[in-house]
Design a protein around this nucleic acid. Structure first.
Lengths: 256, 256
DNA sequence: TAAATGTTATTTGTAATACATTATATGTAT
DNA sequence: ATACATATAATGTATTACAAATAACATTTA
């Protein structure tokens, strides 16, 4: 009969107003919000509340905040890269394992290669791939683990970028970003070696020959294979960031 | 050669400490953080700063905050549903159209049905689908648009849930959540009618007969078809939340 | 006794003020 | 003109105070 009343925080209503202004087009990227003090007057609330709202928008990647006399809060263009990083923070505590990531990425890239790249864009993709391979081959000779990993993921990112579908691109970015963090944690990137480069070249070659289905299949297998090797090396560290929760524990304490 | 120095906000370092405590396992779901005042003493900072950190964790879905004498900040289990909703807020400003969503979901579900559901789980899926169809057929007779839309998406969510891969499930949830918001905006859900129900039944039937490939294909086509009808009805409203940015505009104003 | 009502203590939510820090712009002296 | 000091305006943080919410306990009342 009656609905439970849940007063939203004042800052939330402010956030909403700003969002609405953006969606209406009253606020566009590069535009500057009034200063915190001005906003206090505009909304008739304290600076604490205004700042809370600004924090929210900031953390969402909506704002760029600069200090100094010409500083302030500026509306920012949405950046998928940032969103992906943001997502990773959230997912740190979810039960995501490296195998989940590998499985998802393998399927995703196979799917993209199969169905989501218009034929006329394929030449672009192939060219980009070949350039990446050329660049990467330099890194692969060096002993810099990090560069090798990055070059590897760059190759795979090319595939996602070709879709022109921001949702697909974002999903791929999230997976890559999470995978990268895994690499940083386990330091087993040594499993990315010359064979990786060879397989990348093969994929490009297959695409060139119009053997889409085979290229897609090889790509998926390639991901599984590399990931499998890594999981093996890192042994029990497959659990992503977090060991499985141990049983009971109800005391309430922070590390002081 | 040198990296620009960007002093992190104090609150950010606090957030990090809390994160580390969680990842180490010192803080588990249901645990209570010290009260804001206690945290002030622990970290030796003001309440403003502590609250800023708490806000961040809260918005990430890490905390549940309760007021009152037994209130406080409690660590919360990660909830994919919430994350998806959160993501949508971020994506409101990205150039995502309904067609992007439809394309992504069609491909995603086809992919899942094809490759990501272990054979032994298929019976569960089929059963769940049949139950959904039974439930949904009631709603479909009523004239409640909203219920019909929800029942429809529930069917498709079943597919994602069967993967047991949180990344895949999350991606699907994000797409569904965004699609739902679109429906709320354009009110053209009337295109979801009896034929939808029929097609759902067909998909379940095909799966029952072990015709996986055909089921996957039908599912994808079904999504495209329904979405196509909706786009047609909503005409130029395909642009999701935001019209494409008009050309220049550099003045700085908020709606005061 | 039991149910309704009032009281209290604790915790988060908001306000107001002050000062610190940062960064641009402007003026001044060499 | 260049280098340096200064002014200025914005965010970042601290402090104090009070409002509002909420569970637990105490009190009243039928």
């Amino acid at each position: 009969m009656f609905k439970k009343i849940k007063e939203p925080r004042i800052s939330e209503t402010i956030v909403d107003q700003v969002f609405q202004a953006i969606l209406r087009g009253d606020l566009k990227p590069k535009d500057k919000l009034p200063s915190e003090n001005e906003l206090c007057e505009i909304f008739g609330v304290s600076r604490v509340t205004v700042r809370e709202a600004i924090r929210y928008l900031d953390q969402l990647g909506t704002l760029e905040i600069r200090q100094g006399s010409t500083g302030g809060s500026f509306i920012k263009e949405v950046n998928l890269e940032e969103i992906a990083v943001q997502m990773c923070n959230v997912l740190r505590m979810a039960n995501v394992t490296f195998l989940h990531l590998a499985e998802a990425r393998a399927s995703l890239e196979r799917m993209i290669l199969r169905e989501l790249i218009p034929a006329e864009r394929r030449p672009h993709l192939i060219q980009a791939m070949e350039e990446n391979i050329k660049k990467a081959s330099v890194y692969y000779q060096s002993e810099d683990d990090n560069s090798r990993v990055l070059a590897n993921f760059e190759f795979h990112a090319l595939i996602a970028e070709m879709t022109n579908n921001p949702i697909i691109i974002l999903m791929h970015k999230i997976i890559v970003e999470l995978s990268l963090r895994f690499f940083k944690n386990v330091k087993s990137s040594t499993s990315i070696g010359g064979s990786t480069l060879d397989q990348h070249a093969q994929i490009a070659e297959l695409l060139k020959q119009g053997k889409i289905e085979e290229a897609a299949e090889l790509c998926a297998n390639h991901i599984c294979q590399v990931s499998g090797g890594i999981v093996e090396k890192s042994n029990e560290q497959t659990s992503f960031f977090k060991k499985p929760l141990s049983a009971g524990r109800t005391d309430q304490k922070v590390k002081g």
